[in-house]
Measured scan of single mutants.
Amino acid sequence: TEHYTFHTEEQAQRAAKKFKKQGLPVTIHEKNGKFTLQVN
């Protein structure tokens, strides 16, 4: 499991699309105004 932190939801969504294209499951969590992208 890898985690990436982004300052905006837009950045997180863009990164999520790249991972999803590779067939990886992705979840985004919002915490304290930051967005954490979790790749399993």
Score class of each variant (00 low, 15 high):
His7Trp: 11
Lys31Asn: 12
Glu9His: 10
Ile28Trp: 03
His29Tyr: 13
Thr27Cys: 12
Lys34Met: 12
Gln13Lys: 11
Val26Asn: 01
Phe35Lys: 02
Gln38Trp: 12
Phe6Ser: 01
His29Gly: 07
Leu24Thr: 06
Pro25Glu: 15
Thr36Leu: 13
Gln22Cys: 15
Asn40Phe: 11
Gly23Ile: 01
Lys21Ile: 09
His29Ala: 10
Ala15Thr: 04
Asn40His: 13
Val39Asn: 01
Ala15Pro: 00
Leu37Phe: 05
Glu9Ser: 07
Gln11Ala: 13
Arg14Asn: 10
Thr8His: 04
Lys20Phe: 09
Asn40Glu: 12
Gly33Ile: 00
Leu37Lys: 02
His29Ile: 15
Thr1Ile: 12
Gln11Ile: 04
Lys34His: 13
Val39Leu: 09
Gln11Thr: 05
Leu24Asp: 03
His7Ala: 14
Phe6Trp: 03
Lys34Glu: 11
Val39His: 03
Phe35Asp: 03
Ala12Pro: 00
Glu30Phe: 13
Ala16Trp: 04
Glu10Tyr: 07
Lys20Ser: 10
Thr8Ala: 03
Glu30Ala: 08
Ile28Phe: 03
Lys17Leu: 11
Glu2Ile: 13
Tyr4Val: 05
Tyr4Gly: 06
Lys34Phe: 11
Lys21Arg: 10
Glu9Gln: 11
Gly23Cys: 05
Gly23Arg: 03
Gly33Val: 00
Leu37Val: 14
Phe35Gln: 02
Lys20Gly: 07
Ala15Arg: 03
Tyr4Ile: 07
Ala12His: 00
Val39Ser: 03
Gln11Met: 08
Leu37Met: 06
Lys20Tyr: 08
Thr36Gln: 11
Val26Leu: 03
Asn40Val: 12
Asn40Thr: 12
Gln13Ser: 06
Glu10Gln: 09
Arg14Gln: 12
Leu37Ala: 03
Tyr4Lys: 04
Phe6Val: 01
Glu30His: 10
Phe6Gln: 01
Gly23Met: 03
Pro25Arg: 15
Ala15Glu: 06
Gln13Leu: 14
Asn40Ser: 11
Leu37Gln: 02
Gly23Gln: 03
Gly33Lys: 02
Glu30Arg: 09
Gln38Ser: 12
Ala16Pro: 00
Gln11Cys: 12
Phe19Asp: 01
Ile28Ser: 00
Phe19Thr: 01
Ala15His: 05
Glu10Val: 08
Thr36Tyr: 15
Gln13Asp: 04
Ala12Thr: 01
Lys34Thr: 08
Leu24Cys: 07
Leu37Tyr: 02
Phe19Gln: 01
Pro25Gln: 15
Lys31Thr: 10
Ile28Arg: 00
Lys21Pro: 02
Thr8Met: 03
Glu30Asn: 09
Phe19Val: 04
Lys31Ala: 11
Thr36Cys: 15
Thr36Trp: 14
Arg14Phe: 05
Lys34Gly: 07
Thr5Gln: 08
Thr1His: 14
Phe6Met: 01
Glu30Gln: 09
Lys18Asn: 08
Tyr4His: 07
Lys34Ala: 07
Thr5Tyr: 12
Lys21Trp: 06
Asn32Glu: 08
Leu24His: 10
Pro25Phe: 15
Ile28Gln: 01
Phe35Glu: 02
Lys18Met: 12
Lys21Met: 12
Lys20Gln: 14
Lys34Asn: 07
His7Ile: 08
Ala16Phe: 05
Leu37Asn: 02
Phe19Met: 07
Pro25Leu: 15
His29Glu: 12
Lys17Glu: 15
